[in-house]
């Protein structure tokens, strides 16, 4: 087997990742626009995307954002939404034990759903090079951060994003992501339980309690629906 140069590995990463780059751009634009409309500066939006780098958690955070900043709700929501990274990275880590520690520490910051899924697929047939995985991550985080900043810059000229229904684009993205996750009957119960719990909690207690209570209702439904199977 001939080994590839780092540049070839990087180009492989780009050719695998480009559809995800295109798909993430409008979501990043909306994040930037909505974050700006909630009072965040361009610099804050850029730092947000470069440091947190998690689409679902960032969209949820902006949905929850208010003054004063609901720090605890933001942390709880981020933890719950990103808990999947724990399983994803535990699955991927054994495939990159040949990375040096600095390479691991860097490449697990730019670890996201899309580049993870692509790398897991590639790992079935070949060794994952740092130039491949780190390169994809670098492209993805630059793309995400740059389009977030552009969204924050053009946001003020667009006026109230509600006029264009942009606030509802978040809701639509989430509905689309949920639909992609609901593959089985038990996950349908999860969504029903979570929706009911969150709506009741919102009416009874208000924001941000609906996130935690709704999520716990959905998680409990999954455990109950699972029964005593191994």
């Amino acid at each position: 087997m001939t080994s590839k140069t780092p540049l070839e590995e990087f180009k492989d990463g780009l050719s695998d990742l480009w559809p995800a780059l295109v798909a993430a751009a409008p979501i990043a634009l909306l994040f930037g626009t909505m974050a700006q409309s909630k009072g965040l500066s361009v610099l804050e939006v850029g730092l947000f995307s470069a440091l947190v780098f998690a689409g679902g958690a960032q969209l949820a955070a902006i949905e929850l954002w208010s003054t004063p900043v609901p720090l605890f709700a933001l942390m709880a929501s981020t933890f719950l939404i990103n808990a999947r990274y724990l399983l994803m990275s535990a699955s991927f880590a054994p495939k990159v034990t040949h990375f040096s520690w600095p390479q691991r520490l860097i490449s697990f910051h730019v670890f996201a759903d899309e580049n993870w899924a692509l790398a897991e697929r590639r790992a079935r047939t070949q060794r994952i090079a740092f130039a491949y995985f780190g390169g994809m991550g670098l492209l993805f985080i630059i793309n995400w951060t740059a389009f977030s900043v552009v969204g924050a810059l053009v946001g003020p000229f667009l006026g109230d994003p509600r006029r264009f229904g942009a606030d509802f684009a978040f809701i639509a993205i989430f509905i689309g992501l949920i639909a992609g996750l609901v593959a089985t009957r038990s996950s349908f119960f999860v969504v029903l339980a979570s929706a009911a719990g969150a709506t009741l909690a919102y009416i009874a207690l208000g924001t941000p309690w609906h996130v935690l209570i709704g999520a716990l209702c959905g998680i409990a439904a999954a455990a109950i629906a699972h029964g005593d199977k191994p």
């Binding site: 679902g56 929501s77 809701i171 949920i178 969504v191 009911a196 999520a215 959905g218 999954a222 699972h226």
Partner: peptide
Amino acid sequence: GRMRAAFDAIPPAVLTAVVAPTLF
């Protein structure tokens, strides 16, 4: 078993909880 099912349910449960009050 149950723990795995509960862990796997986290992403849809959380995403749903975030949007449900807007919808309902």
